[in-house]
Nucleic acid binder design. Structure first.
Lengths: 231, 231
DNA sequence: CCTGAAACGAGAGCACTGCTCTTGCATTCC
DNA sequence: GGAATGCAAGAGCAGTGCTCTCGTTTCAGG
């Protein structure tokens, strides 16, 4: 223990992030405002710089937290389902991500929206960023073990095949190239749908977006895990 | 003709937008800077306000232009293919959108990235915004006429079914609910994939993102237009 | 052709932002 | 106890969107 000072510092750091999150939720992800945070803390803006070297630094911390939160949500949803029921696992994880995104739209957009200008994600973010993806890859791995075959089998070109091989070695998971491609497509489709809904692209088009997303998830599950759990 | 003044005004308006586009491409979509535009024009910042009432107003004009550009690209790609070959039409439109997005990433992100904070899309934007979607719906309509059936047929819940009925009446296109759902899912998946690629979510994961996208498009085409053009 | 109205660009200025630097004070460590 | 470090405050800099005012230029109706 380095004494009181360290604990106060940790608390204040957490408080700054909490206020930043709340303000972002109210004013939009790009309106992160150091002076407003300082004002709310009864501090002067320059004092914030004792805790975060710059606005980007605070942003990075928030992004890492958000990635971890999403990752945890995905892991928890996956763990709550029978490991052999890949389809149920996929649906659980997909719905968990959707629910989390709807509850924390600003955080979701912080991760998958337009990158904040001039901001380059530092190395610290890539590990938390992969947590959710690893959950999906785990499901894909189990599906491959069960002999799953995507509903539509594309021919994977060699360049992509090389990437997939490296990805399999890196994570120790995954099925053949076709299943892998279908899985990644489902991954992007999932986040594409969430992004569309959050950004209001369906406004005045679809009323019940929640039901729509549920159907999308079902569709994706059926497209990827075709021969598994047929009815 | 209302004289020289009107023409100069139109030219300057266009020039402001052109500079804004270029600067956004260089500095990121959220860094639209009125003073920098004015500087480049050799004007003073307040003069810009003679042409656009506010920063949001300029943003709206740029968004409308971008929607129209994307819509035109989609329409042109669709028109260049035999109207009966729905699969080829879908691939052409999908690839056209991808190519346009890669060439104009800032414009694409202006449309489908995080909404600029505090910015609410006014009524003027919704008509141009639907242009690209209408192209896709047209393909879906032709597919329905040919008896296309999606690879995986979900059960569409009544609330979504109502939305689809209204959408069909509004646009005069579309097949049955199942095909409609598959089409909308393909739509979101398409833009989800483009967004992932543009935002660099595949960095250090997939090297040849172009090949990856081409496969995604093939996969989507196969998922939606299953019984059409079997080989 | 002339004149009043409208449009225009320049400039100053307001409130705000992220960020830097210096200055005292409090805490920690040797 | 004294030195080193952590800390908040305050002033200040360069930049932002936006407003208002002030002469000038253009245009249209009499």
């Amino acid at each position: 223990m380095t004494g009181v000072r360290a604990r106060v510092r940790a608390e204040l750091t957490a408080e700054i992030k909490a206020i930043a999150r709340r303000q972002m939720a109210e004013e939009g992800p790009a309106n992160l405002n150091l002076r407003a945070i300082a004002r709310e803390l009864g501090m002067v803006s320059s004092a914030i710089y004792r805790y975060f070297a710059s606005r980007d630094d605070l942003l990075t911390a928030l992004i890492v937290d958000a990635y971890n939160a999403l990752g945890e949500v995905g892991e928890a949803a996956d763990a709550a389902v029978d490991p052999h029921e890949v389809r149920a696992r996929f649906l659980a994880v997909a719905n968990a991500a959707y629910r989390w995104a709807c509850e924390q739209p600003s955080q979701y957009l912080l991760l998958f929206g337009t990158p904040v200008p001039g901001y380059a994600a530092p190395q610290d973010t890539i590990a938390p960023a992969t947590r959710f993806t690893i959950v999906l890859l785990g499901i894909l791995d189990e599906a491959a073990r069960q002999g799953a075959v995507p509903a539509v089998r594309p021919t994977v070109p060699p360049t992509v095949s090389v990437d997939f091989r490296r990805l399999r070695e890196l994570t120790g998971t995954g099925g053949d190239d076709e299943l892998m491609l279908a899985g990644m497509q489902a991954w992007t489709a999932l986040f594409g749908a969430i992004g569309f809904i959050l950004n209001g692209q369906f406004r005045n088009v679809i009323g019940d977006v929640d039901a729509m997303f549920a159907e999308f998830a079902q569709l994706l599950a059926g497209q990827v895990f075709h021969e598994v759990d047929p009815a």
